[in-house]
Design a protein around this nucleic acid. Sequence first.
DNA 1: TTGTATGCGTTATCAA
DNA 2: TTGATAACGCATACAA
Lengths: 351, 351
Amino acid sequence: MRNVSRNVSQSTKMATIKDIAREAKVSVSTVSYALNDGPRSVPDEVKQRILDVASRLHYRPNRVARSLITRRSHVLGVVPTRIERDMIIGPYFVSMLNGIVNACEDLHQDVLLLTQLSTMDSKEALYPLLDGRCDGAIFIAPSHDSEGIHYLQEIGFPHVLVIGRDERSTSFDIDNSVGVRLAVDHFAGLGHTKIGMLMGPEELIDGYERNQSFLESMRSHGLTVQEKWMIRASFHPDSGLEAGRVLLSRKERPTAVFCANDEVATGFYKACKEFKVRIPEDISVIGFDNAPTSTMVEPNLTTVKQPIDQMSRHATEALVSLIEGKTETLSRRFITALVERQSTARPMEDK
Amino acid sequence: MRNVSRNVSQSTKMATIKDIAREAKVSVSTVSYALNDGPRSVPDEVKQRILDVASRLHYRPNRVARSLITRRSHVLGVVPTRIERDMIIGPYFVSMLNGIVNACEDLHQDVLLLTQLSTMDSKEALYPLLDGRCDGAIFIAPSHDSEGIHYLQEIGFPHVLVIGRDERSTSFDIDNSVGVRLAVDHFAGLGHTKIGMLMGPEELIDGYERNQSFLESMRSHGLTVQEKWMIRASFHPDSGLEAGRVLLSRKERPTAVFCANDEVATGFYKACKEFKVRIPEDISVIGFDNAPTSTMVEPNLTTVKQPIDQMSRHATEALVSLIEGKTETLSRRFITALVERQSTARPMEDK
DNA sequence: TTGTATGCGTTATCAA
DNA sequence: TTGATAACGCATACAA
């Protein structure tokens, strides 16, 4: 047999259980059972001999072959939301990924970042996920009601949604309406009535919900929402800067501004500086997420915290449960909390 | 044959080429050739029939089986440097990962994040990397001279180092000494002579090199390095804050401080605020990396920029080249540049 | 032009 | 207690 390897890159030939079997004068099955500690028992003496040979040959099991037959890869797919190609939704996504990786370490899983899933609105788009390389998937902030998610539900592919919600999928998220209410309550409690918002992107579920919740919260406080103070932004500092310029250019300005997330707030800080508007003396600001940056800016940003570490860990553990066949629903909605720092004060008129 | 699936999770049975062959009344090989467009040609009519059946059965190729035989997974392993378990070296690592993911999208590769590689100082520790799940690996900021890297070199496993350097591995990094020199030159040009440093961690190659380079640069300017102004820190804001407190508690203070990276600088900003030290009036600050946060803090941080996007793209492309058998060395050292912002000024004494 | 048969490295199922 | 052998799903050398 010609042995022209197509695999030009790896020079040394890997030892297989076959090689070990030959060296140790036993059958491949015995080798397999010895290396895996079961399900069949192998006498200590022969097991030791096999282990020695394996070590001498630098044997390492081929997990591809193994997962072909066991149908388990011990890999979790992660599908990041990507905004205009860039994967990262700022520091937020990072924390989430970090939490997933930490949980995976404990659960002996690896993480496959699916780069090829550009869209999720067809069955076909999800094929890269279903080719056996991973046992299940975590979707971070998926767009709502996508065809892809429905398909996964239909075929029973294990998956969880984090920062996202679907009745038929295991989901982990926060109640945005509660979070936003905390912010508006805080403004109202300080005496603010002229409250504006740098809104989040409608196509992201968090953006949509926070925008809606703001309107509701204002209504429930009997406060009127001024169209001129509702400025659209995306979850990005640059966008916050631009939107902030628009807002601060109005003839009349609000005394408080709720930003759809901390990155937007960071951009708004810059706009305030440009317009020589002081925080919190001239204008109070609240963000959302409690991103690391919220304590880096001056004054430190008052914001709504969501427990990302907990969420990512729960999501990861739930996915592994689903993969192992547990069927009970594990969805959970997490608690938010207002973190008071230095970006809020009573409105000027009160003083 | 009993068909008790061990795979409890996935309910629907996947169609295989065998199923397609049966339905389309052709052999499996014909199906394979039709689906892969070669290497054998298949008449258009029969090919169309096969494609139709495949689509009707929602066929998706099992990439595990495929890669077992082709010995290519089209997956790139990424081994992140993890500091005390947390994966992220701040915004820096994120940008790097983002660049890798973007490059992978273009190159049709996915990314496997190896969570199980806790250490790299033995052959065995690297086994999770060598089990066939990925074709090669990118190491981000690996510790220097690790046994693991040498092992990969020895067995010819394709890999690249980014923010790291080894003569025998394809490496992509910056010349820290040039970057540090830019910073010290800038300080010196402004008339500073009393220059301190919040040092990076010695165990990271960037930390080590920047510390060393600072000493050299100072020497070449004929400036004396004061031990009392050289404070150890790790690449983290909290550490920068602590180190900053130590530095600012000295009876005599420097007029300029070089921070080993931007995160440390961010922490130092906080220390300055605590001690009512104004930047840049009382003290000038330069960071390293040009992280997103450098424009979020006030005053915006003057820093040394490294081209992370370029580096990550080059590293990814180089790894794919190596996997495909190209052997020429592709190592490259990238250019740094000083980004002047508002955190530096002439020292007080001059005014 | 097409079908059969072999092998990739495992695990699992036989039979001994 | 063990060894042969059949899968797993695919790609491909060989036959026809």
